[in-house]
Design a protein around this nucleic acid. Structure first.
Lengths: 235, 235
DNA sequence: ATAAAATACGAACGATCGTTCTATTTGTCA
DNA sequence: TGACAAATAGAACGATCGTTCGTATTTTAT
């Protein structure tokens, strides 16, 4: 008999209303019993998210995935009721990786400017470190699914929107603390967010580390320009 | 008998060595006889590029394309020897659209700062105008194919690299003319290029026009910051 | 140790993928 | 108008897609 089909516990609502938006992301982590099937399920998702970051969530096929993992197609399929649920699980898995690699470490920095810097730098680092072989998972997934409809698209949109808002929120917090005099929080967030995405794009396309150099220079400039502290050119 | 199979006349080499890099792109336009088959071929590519911008070049299937165009699968297929050649033709078609919509109009502006502004603004406008229903064709195609190998990826990489270099080249030209005091041409190009891509991403994902507002504000800021002219706040 | 429940497998389904034939229609030029 | 080529259609191919089902095997609990 196939494994019990677990229902999606979305864990979506009201992340922004929290005092510390990043913290809410941590609470959403599901800790399921460490049964035998759960282990292979994780192994599947680990490999699947790697494939999906390179070939897309649609290019990820059940047969190919099973072949690479050396398990039967039906055995694999039993863990997910359908391809769409597999895709959803992959997106969810990628979200957890994103939290582990970026959100959690950033939480160890003080709110305001230090955390803002950490968020952007960790994000850039996760691209640079090739956490996913195809670069930022959500950059790929969002551009692949932006034209479609359905729960996968919605989930990707939710995560990416949340992250952009988190960056913008930290810009706003920095201003509240007098660390930034940024005019429009969303505009600075737009810049920073765009620099990382541009670096991801350029690096994936041309495999040249200079894209990260440029991104860091642009990020520093943008923050310094909006900063009240005089951080440079003091003898 | 199927139509003659035309061989790819790449038209790639030494675009940058030209005096006016943008002009070289115009020369590459192929003007084929306007036979009956050529008309349907164009009709196919027109529709195919629209589909590809939304569903990706891999999501573009021969059967679905034929069905939507109300022609037979084999009749369609006769125009292209293989799916890969179809994809290549679609990329080539999209390149022509890009030239028509952005490069050609930008050429009507003086070299240097005016043309730089035109290039970026026309590019942004082509996203805003939904020239392709899925947004910038090359943003989608490059992120879809960055992980693979083969002629399609190479073609996309070539076009996108050329365009980035064209932007950077115009920044450099602006500096030569004393219109910009930008430190690193590639860095300003990185910013401008990133803003448009970020706007494309945000607009495709969330269908909100504010992304264009933010992009234009960021673009203006970046150029003004690097500009020697005092363009603002003069009574 | 044994029963029950949880996992995995192998074989097969219909649908669609890209592709290849051969035949038929359409257009062009003598 | 007739000959010939260009252009489209139709039917079928093997491969692979996502999916289902019945059965074996393992893991877990008693």
């Amino acid at each position: 008999m196939p494994p019990v089909k677990r229902k999606q516990s979305a864990g979506t609502a009201k992340l922004r209303s929290s005092v510390d938006p990043l913290l809410a992301a941590l609470a959403a982590r599901d800790s399921r019993p460490d049964s035998a099937g759960e282990a292979t399920r994780r192994r599947i998702l680990e490999h699947a998210s790697a494939i999906a970051s390179r070939s897309g969530l649609e290019g990820l096929t059940v047969g190919e995935l099973a072949k690479q993992l050396k398990i039967s197609k039906s055995g694999l399929f039993a863990h997910f009721g359908s391809k769409e649920e597999l895709q959803l699980a992959v997106v969810q898995h990628a979200s957890r990786r994103f939290v582990d690699e970026i959100v959690r470490p950033a939480l160890e920095h003080d709110r305001g400017l230090p955390r803002l810097r950490a968020m952007v730098e960790f994000w850039l680092g996760y691209v640079e470190r090739n956490v996913f072989p195809g670069g930022c998972f959500f950059a790929a997934a969002s551009l692949e699914f932006d034209g479609r409809a359905g729960p996968v698209r919605d989930h990707v949109a939710e995560v990416t929107a949340w992250w952009f808002d988190a960056v913008a929120g930290e810009v706003a917090e920095s201003r509240r603390r007098g660390q930034l005099q940024a005019a429009d929080p969303d505009l600075l967030a737009f810049r920073l967010h765009g620099y990382v995405q541009e670096a991801n794009w350029g690096y994936q396309m041309f495999r040249d580390d200079r894209w990260f150099v440029r991104a860091r220079a642009a990020i520093d400039d943008a923050i310094r320009q909006a900063s009240t502290e005089i951080t440079a050119s003091r003898p």
